[in-house]
Design a protein around this nucleic acid. Structure first.
Lengths: 222, 222
DNA sequence: TACGCCGTCGTACCCCGGTACTACACGGCC
DNA sequence: GGCCGTGTAGTACCGGGGTACGACGGCGTA
């Protein structure tokens, strides 16, 4: 019997997880936490096999909670589950000692498989993340810069791969000179790209481009 | 017996809703849609009493789907349910003919109560939204500009109300001159505010400020 | 082959954004 | 009364961002 602790600030999300897990006869939910501090406390008390850990929670977030739980030497495995698919928090989470990383829009079976995998000591990464993870290890560029957006938003349809890449790093808050340096380009090239991005997307300046990047989920909130 | 259609692109979210609703003996789920187009089709086929409609879905979004369903003259009531608490989509949704608006982090009981309310012809607005709604009607400024962020992010802690307001409209992509015009300020005043915002938040320029605004959910993706 | 798209780079120009001050009215509080 | 935070406003300056060009090599394809 695999014991699971759910750490998520959204009641409905917890409810969904609990219902799903309790429907399996090899799993049981031993507790629910609504923030990082509570998660740490409940892990200490119940010693669950697995924690389903949300990243974004009020107060202590999931990453820091993961770090502290791992630091206690508990043999609890932590499976990070978040709404968003990319962002460097994924890597932070893994670095913090998490055994895996899944996205919330995964199929229930995928989630269950992930839990069983980490409970048995394996690591698991959402298929949608694997490519980014590899990319990040291959190039030492910003992780998200090498990855393509998944849900193809019409407003980004005419952008080339390179332009998406540039738009992504604009969305990280980089200046033109920074983009040029870190992408090994001339600043004039960066400007050319940005000019094309603005005209193609019908945006006025980089600020509106950043907003579009967020709206289309080319970049996602931390 | 209240018949309900679930329209949400996230499988786990649908699963949670379905489990919750099926646990009630006066409700039944007659279908699940993963986007707006599908929702319209299933409403036409099943004529549910209530649609639980997510806003953000691939393809046709929940707002437009609501608009079209209402336009068909169907007596189906639509209850919009979204992850984010603010954004003007709330108002768009209500204008599109939705009977109510709830946030996903509501308690399950609140959700059930909301469904029963709209099924019986009442309108319902999440308590967390009521204040904004009022604010928006009182002043005729952009809705989000008059509202305060809920989950108090430490990075915004030192900002004054006015500064948050300015940061919000920066997050809308407005230029300094536009902000000055629409908020009836001198551009120099706008610059003063922005300067203070940047120094308080430790951000370098308005682009990074926008990113922070998204990360802290002061503004939310469309 | 020739065309077009893409990615690269350059120059020149202008304006917006951000900085660095100063300043003052108002309200709350010691 | 005097102080402080807040919101307002001004001037002066400079650098980065965006625009408008032109140019060229590589690559796929009609």
């Amino acid at each position: 019997m695999t014991t699971v602790l759910i750490a998520d600030d959204q009641p409905m999300q917890r409810f969904g997880f609990r219902m799903l897990l309790e429907s399996q006869d090899d799993m049981t939910v031993v507790g629910e936490a609504t923030n990082g501090t509570e998660a740490i406390r409940l892990v200490d008390r119940h010693r669950p096999d697995v924690v389903l850990m949300d990243i974004r929670m009020p107060g202590l977030d999931g990453i820091e909670a993961t770090r502290r739980i791992i630091a206690t030497g508990a043999r609890t495995r932590i499976l990070i589950v978040t709404t968003f698919d990319l962002d460097e928090y994924a890597y932070d989470g893994l670095r913090a000692g998490a055994s895996g990383f899944l996205v919330k829009d995964a199929q229930p079976e995928e989630l269950l498989a992930g839990i069983r995998a980490v409970a048995s000591g394996d690591a698991v990464v959402a298929p949608s993340l694997t490519r980014r993870l590899l990319d990040a290890y291959v190039h030492h560029l910003p992780p998200s810069a090498t990855a393509a957006p998944r849900p193809e938003d019409p407003r980004l349809a005419t952008l080339t791969e390179r332009e998406r890449e540039i738009l992504t790093v604009i969305g990280q808050g980089w200046t033109n000179t920074e983009i040029a340096e870190r992408l090994h380009l001339a600043e004039s090239t960066v400007k050319t790209h940005i000019g094309r991005i603005l005209s193609k997307t019908g945006t006025r300046d980089r600020v509106q481009a950043v907003i579009l990047a967020y709206d289309t989920q080319l970049v996602t909130p931390a």
